[in-house]
């Protein structure tokens, strides 16, 4: 039986009717037109569908849409509504991504990390994106860009 759920997506309240087995990722992409979460493996291995659920990174391919009822969801589209975040700026400056298919997931994983740990160690950075597969970059330009945000914050304090 279908059910109407309410999500706060990127700050905007959205009501949507979903079936009991509808996957959050599909509802975001097909019913709500939010395309930045990508479909890479549909089993939680690649991390391309990562979104923030109440600030915590989750695989939207592993979550039923009804589980998200009443919760806040942030996707890549929502991050830059007031201009690019310092993290996005840093990725831009470092040209961290190549094909960019993993970027929506990695940007959100790193956003969560920096919200929790403003000055993460390199190991913490690596671990925070270890669930996001990237085939292009070898991760290094991504790790450097995340570390640069932390270093810039340190300097500005």
């Amino acid at each position: 039986m279908n059910k109407q759920i309410t999500l706060t997506i990127n700050g905007e309240a959205r009501a949507v009717e979903v079936g009991p087995t509808d996957i959050l990722l599909d509802v975001l992409r097909e019913k709500l037109g939010i395309k930045s979460p990508k479909i890479g493996c549909e089993r939680g291995d690649c991390g391309a569908c990562t979104v923030l659920l109440d600030g915590k990174s989750v695989r939207s391919c592993l979550i039923l849409a009804i589980e998200a009822d009443g919760h806040k969801i942030t996707t890549l589209e929502g991050l830059s509504r007031n201009g690019l975040t310092p993290l996005q700026e840093s990725f831009l400056k470092h040209s961290s991504f190549q094909c960019g298919f993993c970027a929506p997931g990695i940007v959100l994983s790193a956003t969560e990390l920096l919200a929790k740990h403003p000055h993460p160690s390199e190991e913490e950075i690596k671990e925070s994106i270890s669930g996001n597969l990237c085939r292009c970059t070898g991760y290094k330009p991504i790790i450097e860009a995340i570390a640069a945000v932390s270093n810039a914050r340190r300097k500005s304090v």
Binding site: K35, S80, L84, Q88, L92, S95, F97, P104
Partner: peptide
């Protein structure tokens, strides 16, 4: 020079359109 990639901005804002989009 380390010029910025010409195709990076949309990849960081979610506007880049891949085939399935």
């Amino acid at each position: 020079k380390r010029e910025r990639r010409v195709d990076i901005l949309g990849k960081l804002t979610g506007l880049a359109k891949f085939a399935a989009d």
